[in-house]
Nucleic acid binder design. Structure first.
Lengths: 118, 118
DNA sequence: CCGATGCATCGAGGACTGTCAATGAGTGAG
DNA sequence: CTCACTCATTGACAGTCCTCGATGCATCGG
């Protein structure tokens, strides 16, 4: 039903990826560097990377938490924590249906993160 | 004179970026995820991102450490530490000339990291 | 209603990381 | 040779993050 949209302390839509065309163009200001580092920090975890790839390669392009716990090999609270981090970064979106919450990736954000490294 | 090539515990040429075409293709194995997360962790620091952009936008494409300390706003040992991390990740290369060490970026590695997010 | 299921949150502990002052190693000038 | 300069290394401290067990909050079945 309701879209589980997380909004962290620094809304992703205003931070990091969205301010600078590329890292190598000009001497990156301090605050932009902090925001961008935050974006990359989200990807700097094996569990989160595996969650992203699991969701992306899922049959319907989405999966519920209960289907992610076992493949990732971590406890359910830990998986929930990482999904929250990914959600706050705008890399995934969760949608609650009945007892389950279905997550899917947001490839556009990954694309924009990619362009920063040009 | 001598190329300052660092080799960390996990040689960059065998880790992370070099094993998987893209994160979203298939359910990323555990060890690959760990390696990739390590690569992204190198980018998950504001000082390192600024060092990269400073080097990339430097006049001759390179700069010595003494020219990087003041713009980055950290102590000399801290800057040296971050340059070491970047060097071990293969993102920069240092070359010693006399009393100075000149660093330059290795854009090829950044390009390969970019392709993983495809 | 009542119990079971799916997921989020809380709190704590353990490991890792960024930072600096102090120090060491190598180089060039005088 | 000696001093000044550039950079790397060491050791220590503080902050952050990953992880889990315990708990709480919905939802559905009977």
């Amino acid at each position: 039903m309701s879209e589980l949209v997380r909004t962290g302390a620094t809304p992703v839509s205003e931070a990091g990826v969205d301010c600078c065309p590329t890292v190598l163009a000009s001497p990156l200001p301090e605050d932009h560097a902090v925001a961008l580092a935050g974006d990359f920090a989200v990807l700097a975890d094996p569990v989160r990377l595996r969650l992203l790839s699991l969701l992306a390669s899922a049959t319907a392009g989405e999966a519920c938490v209960c289907d992610l716990v076992e493949p990732v090999g971590r406890s359910q609270p830990t998986v929930s924590h990482h999904l929250r981090v990914l959600s706050e970064a705008g890399l995934v979106v969760g949608e609650k249906r009945g007892r389950w919450v279905w997550y899917r990736t947001v490839p556009e954000r990954l694309t924009r993160l990619r362009q920063v490294l040009a």
